[in-house]
Design a protein around this nucleic acid. Structure first.
Lengths: 250, 250
DNA sequence: GCGGCCACTAATGTATACAGACTGCACTCA
DNA sequence: TGAGTGCAGTCTGTATACATTAGTGGCCGC
């Protein structure tokens, strides 16, 4: 698919949504800052109708918050909010893994997941891991989580996981890039990959409780990454999502 | 227009949303049926702009589904979808209960929950339970679950639970009324109330795992109610939410 | 000097007009 | 007779004008 085509054919609503989301995630719009429709019109150069729709969509996504008197503000998240969102995602992915295990995912449906696992193995084998490999890992990791979620074969659950993962800091790959700057990088990567291996094994053997538990624990790697990244505050630029973090001072 | 005063104060968007939701839940709009904006305008007597916003909101709620070529259709749910939504809600409420326990909900914050528990006890004590008592139970039960959710003190989690519970058949009180017609009514009520008691006790004693487990099990009462109600198909009229159920024939 | 009220401004809520895209049908040509 | 093309009707997407409300600042009265 060509970039230009999609750029041109895309609706004004989506364009506005993308533009505003970028500005929020990049920190150009600060947490707590009020954003009026007219402002959004100025920024995006589309008229109020699609802008409004875009604002509503961003509210669902969780990036904006409606102000009772009308209008929206950029949502601010505490560190606790982020950690809770990660735990929440882990819980839901745990449920997805349990469903996959209990309902007997077929050998055929497990195949793509296993291929993905093998691809990840390739990437993880390097030591030290190149930045490119990290980047590839992020993509592959996202694919692994998506496949796992699909395996639950539960549309309502898939929907919820997608909603939670829409928040960049709650997504499965949200803090992987932060690792790349850490000394513990390779070790954490290996542990994460072991979790992947275990969950596939558990699903294959119909071990629902084990599959669920390991996915919960797996998500806590993201929490660990976040804490490490916040402690050595040097590499926060790798994490644009943290623009939404309420500064502790305020 | 000179409508009633009470209806004039709320916005057209909300009015349209309520009207359309009622029609969907009451079955006047069938699952799978397409709703065009103009149709919605006809139905609600408001103009396209607020109607459109209402349709988008109902899509988020999960009652509608966007059609790729544009427009919306009423979402159809299988029995499995409904059961999964209940399990999902149970899982999230379980997480909320665990958070409440682990984070040490203060004695003060537990008080409203305990009062609610006592009120529910009063209602459950009757045998047989009057229809009015059932109705009061539904209200009180909703309050109990809302208080419990709040106790997690986790905005992201509260948000997700609210989203899931927005689907009427996934809400904590979704199938309580179905019970009232069942011979097992009183017994199920007593069991449910015992779950309530246990979760409060577990939170008080900081037993996170126990609090989580009991809330998961608690939600399965709703699943049981649903199955019973579907088996003796006599009292389905008590459950308007089931208008969204895909008929097995199709 | 302080507090309350009124008026003005600006933003949101709503309606509608216009344009582009898609669907369905009919007609024509091979 | 079948398939393709063109046209018409209708729908969604977008823009904009109008109405209404909330918020703010200044002025007047106590």
């Amino acid at each position: 698919m060509s970039e230009r085509d999609s750029e041109r054919s895309i609706s004004q609503t989506v364009r506005a949504q993308l533009a505003l989301r970028d500005m929020i995630l990049s920190g150009q719009l600060r947490p707590g800052e009020r954003i009026s429709e007219l402002q959004a019109v100025e920024i995006t150069n589309v008229s109020r109708t699609p802008v409004r729709l875009a604002l509503v969509r961003l509210e669902d996504e969780g990036l904006l918050q409606a102000i009772p008197s009308g209008g929206f503000m950029v949502k601010a998240f505490t560190e606790r909010d982020i950690l809770d969102s990660i735990e929440l995602r882990g819980t839901l992915e745990g449920l997805a893994a349990r469903f996959a295990a209990e309902r007997g995912a077929s050998a055929r449906s497990l195949e793509p997941l296993k291929e993905c696992l093998a691809d990840l193995d390739q990437l993880v084998r390097q030591d030290p891991v190149s930045v490119e490999a990290f980047s590839a890992y992020v993509t592959m990791n996202a694919r692994f989580h998506a496949l796992l979620t699909e395996l639950s074969a539960s549309p309502p659950l898939i929907r919820q996981i997608d909603r939670v993962s829409a928040l960049p800091f709650a997504s499965p790959s949200g803090f992987v890039m932060a690792q790349s700057a850490l000394p513990e990088a390779h070790q954490i990567l290996l542990i994460g990959q072991d979790h992947h291996r275990i969950v596939v094994d558990a699903i294959e053997n119909r071990e629902g409780a084990r599959a669920e538990a390991i996915m919960r624990e797996h998500s806590r790697l993201a929490a660990r990454n976040l804490r490490l990244a916040l402690r050595n505050r040097t590499h926060l630029d790798l994490l644009p999502a943290l623009a939404l973090l309420q500064s502790p001072a305020e």
